[in-house]
Design a protein around this nucleic acid. Sequence first.
DNA 1: GCACGCACCGAATTTCGTTCGGCGGCTGCG
DNA 2: CGCAGCCGCCGAACGAAATTCGGTGCGTGC
Lengths: 153, 153
Amino acid sequence: MDDIDSAIVRELQRDARQTNRDLARTLGIAPSTCLERVRALRQRGVITGYRATVDLRALGRPVQALLSVRIRPMSREVIEGFKAYLIGLPEVLNVYVVAGGDDFLVHVAVPEVDGLHSLLMDRFSGRREVVDFRSSVIYQHVTKDVVGPLVAG
Amino acid sequence: MDDIDSAIVRELQRDARQTNRDLARTLGIAPSTCLERVRALRQRGVITGYRATVDLRALGRPVQALLSVRIRPMSREVIEGFKAYLIGLPEVLNVYVVAGGDDFLVHVAVPEVDGLHSLLMDRFSGRREVVDFRSSVIYQHVTKDVVGPLVAG
DNA sequence: GCACGCACCGAATTTCGTTCGGCGGCTGCG
DNA sequence: CGCAGCCGCCGAACGAAATTCGGTGCGTGC
């Protein structure tokens, strides 16, 4: 994990579809070398995949929210079951299982504000393990690239 | 935005680096048609980019947390300034500007739990606009693909 | 019923990914 | 200090892919 690897990771986070040749040119190394580096990064598990990012507005789901959920009991079965349930919901984008005041933070996107209310009433309030929930509408959401290791790896 | 477009978006979220030929074969259309579709999706702003996903553990930042932050005053300048400040911090992965009890939710990743404490003390508690903050360690984080529009677009 | 337009297709061209043999530097040991 | 082994990088060659473009069929509106 040297400077070149970090640069590769940074570049591929910026644009995962740039050609290997372009990437190599940016880094000042040969394409074959670059390819070998990228393969090693994937095999080592540093790069886990490549994903297209979409505009939720363009997909007709402009309203995003974060749902704080408390569940009981906090057994492994209940937690895993609820997590699987959340992932199955089409509105769900991210699921955070957290320590502290809340147990789950659920990032959702819906077509309109009404859908948020429906979601809460139809999919959350009815479930027995859910003892409390609270929703926060998201005004802005910025996702940053991971620039690199904070400690030299 | 028909079924084919939805399938393209779904497939490219699963693997943004699969070849256009493979994608076309999956969809049962010609590669040239597929390419044209993908280009249109990008131009329409449905697909906003392609990003490599990385394993934070492999990058030496296994500890993730969500920081709830309240700031005052809630003026545009202060909000934008604080947001820009957050994005500049290398530990930050996501910034949510939210309504409700908290003003900001900040997703961070650090090398160790100590780093979390340092981050809070050094980067947050000193700032005058920050009136309150609270941190929740993340046990699990699942990111889902956006399967498609919830309403036919 | 006819003409227009749009989307799809398939072949041709260009570019790219991928492999492989060889080279240079670095390291560790004699 | 010299030598041998190794690892990573490079560049050319090959196969595969991206991209372009002209033709075609279908749906639509007049």
